[in-house]
Amino acid sequence: MGKKQVQLIDSLSFYEKAINGQADENSFRYEIMQPMEKMWQYLNAPLLPKTPGGYDVVMASEMMGMWTPRKSVDLIADQISELKATKIFEEYQAVIDTGIARFENIGYEIPLKEFVLNILLADPENKIVMASEGYSGFGGIPGYMILIVFPNDYNRTRLKSALAHEFNHNIRFTYAPFNHGDVSVEEYLVIEGLAEVFAESLFGIEQRGPWVQDYDEEELAYSIEVIKDGRKGRGFEEVAAYMYGDEVAREQGYAPVGLSRNAGYTIGYHIVKEYLKNSGATIEEATLSPSEIIISGSHVFD
């Protein structure tokens, strides 16, 4: 099997230029985002807006919670050294190599030659990212991964786990491609549950992300019932309310459904854990299994 390449985009040099007044919107577009242009094409975000002030990679990046040069550099100036200190720039290769090996060991030939990774500073004024302990990621397009981080005491040790989570998305979507406009609540539960259980299998439960909540039995049972009723809903607007909970749903303009923050991530995690326990499958095997098999085999909605 041919060795997979990992291209790390040099975001640190870009940030150093930014604090010295030598980076602008176009630097962001072409130095930081152009290496991921194919990803952005899938997401219908052009490098340059088609009309002045129109939708482009800069606007899309801001919506995802990244800092861009359209905002004051003072927001991130102190965070560049903090980002370096997390060690993720030295450790990313081992995380991805380990993930690749785990899937190759079960005989899966990953249909990608290269992974492109971007590790970026978050915008501290983005409420959604900051509410997730200052970090998030994106791995929805196979071959491309983004970590978005505003370093703090909580997340600085969890970036390897977050990268493993996004790596699992990359692999899952080589098996079952992601359709943003037609994904079901049920499918999204499985997608996120697989990713977090995979990360946990590599780095332990203590490195689990904040998107999996420690519900008591009553809230767990209540959340399962609400999601059970809505699990066949399709399309990201429908999915978002169930996955993120009412607070984020309102923030993003979606209709709340009566759930706590990150309820869908939490129930998805429990679905995958129950499926693995009941089936004896490994997390790698589950990642390459149909969502309906995982849902039915978990018995969470029985």
Rank of each mutant, 00 (worst) to 15 (best):
E31K: 10
E31T: 09
E31H: 07
I32N: 00
I32V: 12
M33Y: 04
M33T: 02
M33R: 08
Q34F: 02
P35C: 02
P35I: 03
P35G: 01
P35H: 01
M36T: 02
M36V: 07
M36E: 06
E37P: 00
Y42C: 08
Y42P: 09
Y42Q: 11
L43C: 12
L43I: 14
N44R: 05
N44G: 04
A45N: 05
P46G: 07
P46K: 08
P46T: 05
P46H: 10
L47W: 03
L48D: 14
L48A: 11
P49C: 10
T51Y: 09
P52R: 08
G53N: 10
G53R: 07
G53S: 11
G54C: 10
G54W: 05
Y55I: 12
D56W: 06
V58T: 13
M59Y: 13
M59N: 13
A60Q: 07
A60M: 15
A60W: 12
E62C: 11
E62G: 11
M63S: 15
M64T: 08
M66C: 12
W67M: 11
W67S: 15
P69T: 09
P69V: 11
P69G: 02
R70N: 15
R70K: 14
R70E: 10
K71M: 15
K71Y: 15
K71C: 12
S72T: 07
D74V: 00
D74K: 05
L75K: 09
L75E: 06
I76F: 08
A77G: 12
A77K: 15
D78A: 12
D78G: 14
D78Y: 06
Q79R: 15
Q79P: 09
Q79Y: 14
I80W: 08
I80V: 15
S81T: 14
S81R: 14
S81K: 11
E82T: 11
L83R: 14
L83W: 10
K84W: 02
K84F: 04
K84I: 09
A85D: 14
T86A: 10
T86E: 09
T86W: 04
T86S: 05
K87Y: 11
K87C: 09
K87E: 14
K87M: 12
I88P: 01
F89Q: 04
F89W: 02
F89I: 09
E90Y: 09
E91L: 07
E91H: 13
Y92E: 12
A94F: 06
V95G: 01
V95T: 09
I96F: 08
T98D: 13
T98L: 04
T98C: 13
G99F: 00
A101G: 10
R102Y: 00
R102V: 00
E104K: 00
E104I: 00
N105P: 11
N105A: 15
N105K: 07
N105F: 04
G107N: 09
G107F: 08
Y108K: 00
E109T: 09
I110W: 00
I110M: 00
I110F: 05
P111S: 02
L112K: 07
L112H: 04
L112R: 13
L112Y: 02
E114L: 05
E114S: 11
F115G: 01
I119L: 02
I119D: 01
I119F: 02
I119K: 00
L121W: 03
L121D: 05
A122C: 13
P124S: 10
P124D: 08
E125T: 05
E125M: 04
K127N: 09
K127L: 11
I128N: 05
I128T: 03
I128C: 01
V129G: 04
V129F: 02
M130V: 06
A131R: 10
